[in-house]
């Protein structure tokens, strides 16, 4: 296996992906990611010098509209899905300490 994923890499990816992995999951993830990257490295066989990266197959431009409210106020319905809400707002753990 050409790619070796170190513990620090998996920890870093865990931070980026906002995932908390058990030791067992980490070991499995290291193995999985290494074999995926080995497979993806096949792309290095291709010479892509001078090729523009293509994000969309058609030219996609921003679609603008007037800043006018078109939809009705759905806040009550939306809040009905919240794990916790109070006074028309989502409740989350305290984010800033004094």
């Amino acid at each position: 296996m050409a790619n070796v994923i170190r513990d620090e890499t998996i920890d870093y990816v865990g931070i980026l992906a906002k995932l908390e992995l058990s030791q067992e999951e980490k070991e499995a993830a290291k193995k999985d990611m290494a074999s995926m990257l080995d497979y993806i490295d096949k792309l290095n066989e291709l010479d892509t010098t001078g090729v523009e990266p293509m994000s969309h197959v058609f030219p996609v431009n921003n679609v603008f509209r007037e800043d006018v409210v078109e939809n009705p106020d759905g806040s009550e319905d939306a809040l009905a899905n919240a794990p916790e809400s109070r006074d028309s707002a989502y409740v989350v753990p305290k984010t800033v300490d004094q």
Binding site: K18, L19, A82, P83, E84, V92, P93, K94
Partner: peptide, 23 residues
């Protein structure tokens, strides 16, 4: 775990809630 869907039962602070809910 903020606006809809599953939120973990016990957590310490916002980031821990994100991580545990998603994991």
């Amino acid at each position: 775990g903020v606006a809809y869907g599953y939120r973990t039962e016990s957590y310490e602070g916002l980031h821990n809630m994100y991580k545990k809910s998603r994991s």
